[in-house]
């Protein structure tokens, strides 16, 4: 197989990927697309590969959440965004060995952070009928919510979460959108995030929980 062929397949895959979300996708397109996928497994895996990266790169939205105006930041200027800001504050003044953050604020023994993109598979009924506090952001919104256990939840645009703290666990149901967690360490109460799949995050340092990508423990409900 030639390199040219790999490139051609990749180009075709990227065209399908973009056209599919162009807003002008017809049933004819869908049929032709499926035909293309079925024609060769090489087509299919090329498409899946690009689709996965494209979905993953949707987190660019999280990066852009705090940036005003219509233009991306110049290369290398991402520290303007809230997500890099939270990282930089502790790392500037402290060595890598000192994890403990003391002060008037809550004490985060280890700030574990989780970025989680929602799988929109939790029924709305479950979400709104369950116990716990609900937080939502409108389209274009960005909100940081301190939780009683010392954790912090940052909701990106158009997101919905429900947070329920019990003696046994800290549970977050992500109904929609994208949420970034800084989890306060509490070995007695695991931090459980549910987004279609259940994921336990307690005691882990910086776990990426995007469904379909790097979920380290999960179980289908």
């Amino acid at each position: 197989m030639s390199t040219d062929r790999t490139n051609q397949i990749e180009e075709a895959a990227s065209d399908w990927l973009i056209r599919r979300e162009s807003g002008q996708w017809t049933t004819t397109d869908q049929a032709r697309f499926e035909q293309w996928l079925d024609a060769s497994t090489l087509n299919r895996v090329a498409f899946l590969r690009l689709e996965q990266a494209w979905e993953e790169s949707a987190r660019i939205k999280a990066l852009g959440a705090g940036i005003p105006g219509d233009l991306p930041p110049p290369p290398g200027r991402w520290n303007l965004t809230p997500f890099f800001e939270t990282r930089q504050t502790p790392s500037q003044g402290r060595g890598p060995g000192s994890d403990t953050i003391t002060g008037t604020r809550r004490r985060l023994a280890i700030a574990a952070s989780i970025l989680l993109t929602a799988a929109a598979s939790i029924a709305a009924y479950q979400f709104w009928s369950g116990s716990g506090d609900r937080y939502t952001t409108p389209v274009g919104g960005l909100a940081s919510v301190p939780i009683r256990d010392g954790s912090k939840i940052t909701l990106n645009t158009n997101s919905q979460v429900r947070v329920a703290l019990t003696k046994a666990e800290r549970r977050v149901d992500l109904r929609q959108g994208e949420v970034f967690f800084e989890v306060a360490k509490d070995p007695m109460r695991p931090f459980v995030v549910e987004a279609g799949k259940k994921t336990r995050c307690g005691g882990r340092n910086e776990v990426l929980c995007t469904p379909g990508w790097g979920v380290h423990r999960s179980r289908r409900d």
């Binding site: 993953e56 790169s57 987190r59 660019i60 999280a62 990066l63 991306p72 290369p75 290398g76 991402w78 997500f83 890099f84 990282r87 952070s113 989780i114 970025l115 970034f180 882990r204 340092n205 910086e206 776990v207 990426l208 790097g214 380290h216």
Partner: peptide, 19 residues
């Protein structure tokens, strides 16, 4: 280590985007 930090993932995305 497979599980890199969320910040690292975001940083990598930002770098990729910058390119």
């Amino acid at each position: 280590e497979q599980r890199v930090g969320a910040h690292q993932e975001l940083a990598r995305l930002a770098q990729a985007f910058d390119r």
